[in-house]
Computed example of a mutant assay.
Amino acid sequence: MVSDAEGQKLVRLARLAVQHYLEKQVVLKTEKAGLMSGVFVTLNYLTRNEEHLRGCIGFPQAYKALYQSVVEAAIAAATQDPRFPPVDRKELESITFEVSVLTEPEEMPAKKGIRIGQDGLILRWKHGTGLLLPQVPAELGWDVDEYLVNLCYKAGAPPDVWLDPSSRLYRFQAEVFKEHSPGGEVARLGQYK
């Protein structure tokens, strides 16, 4: 479990890592060891009270200490998301940062038991992998079937590939922390666990 204070530190670290990288082309190194966890960093561009996705990259499973994973995911979300051009320094004034700390993914035998707003999903099929964070279907108002279809699309697969016996479906939960405004107060979002 990540405390509110720890979540605030993670979001502030994500912003600092991107600022530092855009200014100096150097990846911050953190001294903080400890917790290992999967993590995703999401960037949203604000325009007149609307948010638009600007980048989202992360690591579904722990492979480094959480703080270093946040640094690397934040920089990648800002500079390597193939859906968007790299973030410009001036844009940071209009971008909010969101950090999702993930539980270890567990395999699911079928769609029964998927909880909208609680379970993030990973689909592995013979040609790739797709992941959707638990907040995505809740924010978009999807039911379980819409969630699975969009997960398939995210994996670059036909909409029913999750039914293929060779495909694997995993679920995880997340603790999500987000800035209310660019560089502003950080709060825990709803419980996605």
Results as ranks from 00 to 15, higher is better:
Pro105Phe: 10
Ala65Asp: 13
Glu50Arg: 14
Ala62Arg: 08
Arg83Val: 01
His20Glu: 15
Leu66Cys: 02
Leu92Thr: 11
Gln191Met: 05
Leu22Ile: 09
Leu169Phe: 02
Pro182Val: 06
Leu10Val: 01
Tyr67Ile: 00
Thr103Leu: 05
Val11Phe: 08
Tyr153Phe: 14
Glu91Lys: 11
Val144Cys: 09
Gly58Val: 03
Thr30Ser: 12
Glu6Leu: 14
Ala77Gly: 00
Leu121Gly: 06
Pro60Trp: 00
Ala187Arg: 14
Val26Thr: 15
Lys178Thr: 13
Glu23Gln: 15
Cys56Trp: 04
Leu121Arg: 04
Gly34Pro: 04
Thr30Met: 06
Ala74Leu: 04
Phe84Tyr: 14
Pro159Thr: 08
Ala138Lys: 15
Ala74Asp: 07
Gly183Trp: 10
Asn49Val: 07
Leu133Tyr: 04
Arg124Gln: 06
Tyr21Pro: 10
Arg89Lys: 15
Trp142Ala: 12
Leu133Ile: 07
Thr129Lys: 07
Pro165Ala: 00
Leu163Arg: 15
Gln61Gly: 01
Pro137Cys: 14
Gly55Leu: 11
Gly184Asn: 11
Lys24Phe: 13
Leu13Pro: 02
Ile95Thr: 01
Val18Trp: 05
Leu131Gln: 03
Leu53Ala: 13
Pro60Tyr: 00
Met1His: 13
Glu185His: 10
Tyr147Glu: 08
Arg168Gln: 10
Pro60Met: 02
Asp119Gln: 07
Ala155Glu: 04
Ser181Glu: 15
Pro60Lys: 04
Arg12Val: 03
Phe97Cys: 10
Arg89Tyr: 08
Glu139Ile: 05
Gly141Ile: 08
Glu175Ser: 13
Gly130Tyr: 00
Glu72Val: 01
Leu35Ser: 01
Thr103Tyr: 05
Leu43Cys: 07
Arg12Gly: 14
Leu131Asn: 03
Ser166Thr: 15
Pro82Lys: 01
Ala138Trp: 08
Leu121Tyr: 00
Ile114Asp: 06
His20Leu: 08
Ser100Tyr: 04
Phe172Glu: 06
Gly58Trp: 02
Cys152Trp: 01
Leu66Arg: 02
Ala33Asn: 08
Arg54Ser: 12
Trp142Met: 12
Glu185Val: 14
Leu92Gln: 11
Lys29Gly: 03
Val176Trp: 09
Ala65Cys: 02
Ser166Arg: 09
Gly130Lys: 05
Ser3Phe: 09
Trp125Gln: 06
Pro109Asn: 07
Ala174Asp: 06
Val161His: 01
Ile95Arg: 01
Leu123Asp: 02
Trp142Tyr: 13
Ala5Asn: 12
